[in-house]
Simulated assay, not measured.
Amino acid sequence: MRLLLGFVFMTGCLMEAQVRIEKTAFSGWPNCYRMTNGEAELIVTSDIGPRIMFFGFRGGQNFFWVQKETAGKSGEPQWVARGGHRIWIAPEDVRYTYPPDNSPVEIEIRGETLIATQPVEKETGIQKQIEIRMAPRGTGVTVIHRLFNRGIMPLEFAPWALTMMAPGGHGVSGFPPRGTHPEMLAPTNPLVMWAFTDLSDPRWTWLKKYFVLRQDPRNPVPMKIGHFNPKTWGAYFLNGEMFLKRYDADPTKTYPDFGCSYETFTNADFLELETLGPMTKVAPGAFAEHVEHWSL
């Protein structure tokens, strides 16, 4: 009897742990898709994008920032910050980075996988795609970004995955393994600044293995920094919970922005955790791919 009850319990747990994808509405967008395994929850809208607009525990807070003024809207002629998670092109360039992603995207569901694909950008000839795979249990999500060259000429760029975090939290990233002097004489990684970077800003906390950037809704001054770590990761602590994104960078390849595999940016509205792939020459019809692993 105990064996039978145990079997029934385990079978119920396995059935409950399956990933479900269902159509829903979110923040004014009527055509969205919720992906959940009963523990984690993720929402993609097909009204604009491709963008992931919600990620968190099921029934819990949204780790992602959603811009109230543009929530539920679409069709704007210019690029809109909007919020959520998106894929861009690096290095940052007005023409190639900022084409608007305000049109409907195609959603394809393959079992427990969701793929969101935008129309080809007329400004660049690039087509952006995000594929999402959620683990059947736990909070793990694999996010695969693809940038297709649909033009007639080769292009060189780096994939750039940006996650806009809700206000009031702390963004954290880690340096490569630390060492001692004189045993380790070679440098380990770049630390990259922008013209507006201010290391004396009180939102920074610098530690031996980590650095912290605090999102402050009262401070509108933009702040940014970048670095390289073969085991790239960024975490965001918000209301006692943590979002983590990881990416394996290749130190043998060339990365944009003086060699950054990770960048973080903040202003009064949000904080971004950003990972960057290597500079890649993409032939017509080919694509560059960039993979992140998320968890809570």
Rank of each mutant, 00 (worst) to 15 (best):
G83D: 05
N267G: 12
L147A: 05
N31L: 05
E108S: 03
T275Q: 06
T197P: 04
V212R: 02
T254F: 08
N267M: 01
W294M: 03
T205A: 13
F9L: 15
E289P: 02
M134R: 03
G240Q: 07
P222K: 04
S74L: 01
F196E: 03
L14G: 05
L185D: 04
K73P: 00
N239P: 02
M53P: 05
I225V: 15
R95K: 14
L199A: 02
T163H: 00
V143D: 01
W79V: 13
P284R: 06
A166H: 06
S74V: 11
M279F: 04
L14A: 14
Y210G: 03
I52G: 07
D248Q: 13
L155T: 09
T266Q: 08
V120G: 04
D250L: 00
G28H: 01
E41M: 12
F64W: 03
P167D: 03
M153Q: 14
R203G: 14
A249D: 04
F196R: 10
I109L: 03
F9D: 09
D250Q: 02
G234L: 08
R203M: 08
C32E: 01
E183A: 15
P30M: 07
P100V: 08
K245G: 04
F265P: 07
R2H: 07
M223D: 10
I126R: 14
L5Q: 07
F7D: 08
M223V: 13
P104W: 07
S74P: 08
T70Y: 00
V221F: 12
E106F: 09
Y262A: 12
M193D: 10
L276H: 04
P187N: 10
G28F: 05
S46E: 11
K23L: 11
G226W: 09
P119W: 10
F54C: 03
S103R: 13
E241W: 00
I132T: 15
R51I: 11
N239I: 07
T24R: 07
P50Y: 08
Y236P: 05
L14Y: 13
E241N: 11
T232R: 00
N62T: 10
E241S: 12
P176I: 09
R133Q: 13
V120Y: 03
S103C: 10
T142V: 15
M10A: 14
E123G: 05
H227A: 02
R20M: 10
D93N: 15
P167F: 08
R203N: 11
M10K: 12
F237K: 12
A158C: 02
P99E: 07
T97D: 02
I130K: 00
Y255C: 01
M242D: 04
T11D: 14
G277K: 00
E263N: 09
E263C: 06
F57C: 02
V212E: 08
I115T: 07
F258S: 13
Q127T: 09
E272Y: 11
K68G: 10
V94E: 14
Q129G: 10
H181F: 15
W194Y: 13
V8T: 07
G169H: 07
G6W: 12
K231V: 10
